[in-house]
Structure formats: structure tokens, C-alpha cells
Simulated scan of single mutants.
Amino acid sequence: MNNHSAIHPGVKLRHIRAFLDIASEGGLSAVARAQGITQPALSRTLAELETLLGQPMFLRQGRRLVLSEAGALFRRHALTAMQALEAGAAALRPGSSGTLRIGVLPTVATRFLPQVVLRFRELHPEILLAAETGPHFHLMRLLRDGLVEVVVGRLPGASEMAGLSFDHLYEDQVILVARADHPLQHATIPEALAASPLILPPATALIRPTVDDYLAANGLSGIRPALETVSLALGRGVCLASDALWFISRGVIAHELDRGEMIELPTGARFLSGAVGMTRRQTIAAPGLVEFEEIARNVARNLP
């Protein structure tokens, strides 16, 4: 064994592919069928890898195989390595097809990112964009595990940025919205907030601390929300059917404001805004990522 290498020379690409597929499926049978081999042959491949690495990669829970602590750590690095190899191979074949996996936060999902996606499709039809949505903490976990290449949305907290980089695109405000004919639209904001059901972003949302600071500054820190969500479908539905007020990023609700279905109640708070951009790992870019990022920058530069 090479004394300067941490990995056994007996570890082959087939071992890594088998391991990653088993980790994704949680079992052997589906992977064996997909690879066109028998389940005992796949099991031997996994056993070989575990012997070469000197660690069990999986624990058995009923019929499922779940990653051990060592397996989860190895998977994170193996994914990055495989993506780097795929990127290297793709670089030798310009125009080759592939999949670019992106994480999408609500603040960019309704207006900004559709423009990016359509432009990317026009220029790079050979690359499939696979978008994952969900809360911030979920997408950041996918990013660190190598299951998405970039997360588009608000700037993460400083404690989350180790090993990551953030590319600023534009500023997006957090606003207070209501249905167009809300009876308290001309009242003061503290009066309207005190008298109306309130929808807040979840405690895990990046914009929640900013909203909490605003409420505290207006003597409403103890106010209890009727609902917590950043979902456009849910928040819009509740607001249109009631007198609820909703603190949400402008980017989420932009179309409803343009159509006049919803109105913005002026808070007068300049600090209710934050950076929107692209967060990615500081590693070799996956096929199409550089092109995607450049298109996103161009779209951001032309925002009104």
C-alpha cells in the first residue's frame, strides 16, 4: 500500500458506485437489478469495500441498510469525488449531457429563478436541471452531503459558512402583506398587527430573526402567530380568506402584489431586507454549474 495515500489501492470505481447506490436506495435488491448483477455479487462488492476501508459502512435495520457513522462520513467525500470525476470527464466532451442539482429557497422560486431556469434551458438544453425545494436547514444539509451543487436563496448565517462560499446577487425585502381589501390597511402597523391574525416565517427560516426584531421594536414581542409558514400556496390562501397579515420575502409574493390580489402594508423599517445569492461548496464545479451561476448573475443585474 502507498504510504502516502490514505486509500487502499484495491478500492476501485465499481466499489464506490455500488456503495453510493446502496446508500441512496437503502438496500441491495434494487441496486442489483439496476446494475444488472445478482444480489450476492453486489453484496460481495460491498464486503470488499468494507474490508479495504477497515470499517462497516452500513447497519442493518430490518430489511433496510442505513449508513453507519463511518459510512455517512465516507459518503460525503465519495460524492464529492465522483462529482469531480464526472466534471473532469464532461470537460473533455463539451456539449455532453448531464444533470445539475440545485437547491431552491422560496424567496427565489416564484420570480427570479424561473427566469434563470428558462435562460439556462435555452443555452444548455443538454443539461437537466433538477431542483430540490424545502426549508433552509434541509437544503444546506443536501449541499454539504453533495446531493445538490448550489443553494439559491438568502445568505446563510456566519456559523454555517465553513467550507462554503456565497455569491451575492441582489437584496430582497421582508414585507408585511394582506389581502387587497383588508379592513385595517390604513391603520398604523402596530394597531393592525395587534388586531389581526399573524402569519410568521418558521423559527428555522433565515428571515425570522429580522421579523422578531421588528416586532420587539414595536412592543409586540409577545404576539402569538396564528400560523408559521413561508409557503406561497398556504400563506396566500389564508390571507385571501381572512384578515391575516403575513411577514414574507417580497420575492415570494411578487406576482400577487403585481396582480393586485395582495397589498403591502408599509412598515417603514429599512432593516427588513437581506442578501440573496448562491451558496456552494468550495470544490470543483459540477457540469453546468459555472454556466448556471453566470446566467443567474446576468438575470440579477437586470432585475427592476
Rank of each mutant, 00 (worst) to 15 (best):
L193D: 11
L234N: 04
V211H: 00
E191R: 14
A178H: 12
E191L: 13
S196W: 11
I253Q: 03
S231E: 09
I223V: 15
A216V: 10
V211C: 01
T204P: 02
T210F: 12
I175F: 10
P202Y: 05
H182R: 03
S196K: 13
F247Q: 00
G219D: 13
T204G: 07
A216D: 08
P201L: 08
A217W: 01
Q185F: 09
S242A: 05
P225V: 03
G235Q: 03
Y214E: 01
I248C: 14
P190F: 05
D243M: 02
W246L: 10
E228V: 04
D243W: 02
L240C: 03
C239F: 09
T210C: 14
G235L: 04
T229F: 00
N218R: 09
P202T: 08
P209G: 09
L206A: 13
S249G: 15
L200S: 02
A187L: 14
P225L: 02
P197G: 03
G235S: 03
P183H: 07
R179N: 10
I248Y: 03
N218V: 09
A244V: 07
S249Y: 02
A187Q: 13
G222T: 12
A178F: 10
W246G: 04
V177Q: 13
A226V: 09
C239V: 13
I253M: 10
L232T: 07
V230S: 05
S196N: 14
L200P: 00
R236A: 11
I175M: 11
G235H: 02
L200M: 09
E191V: 13
P202S: 07
G219Q: 09
L206V: 13
L184V: 07
L215E: 11
P197T: 00
T188N: 06
P225A: 03
F247N: 01
T229Q: 02
E228D: 09
A233S: 14
H186W: 15
D181E: 09
D212N: 11
A244H: 04
I199V: 07
N218L: 08
A203Q: 15
C239W: 05
A192L: 11
R250Y: 08
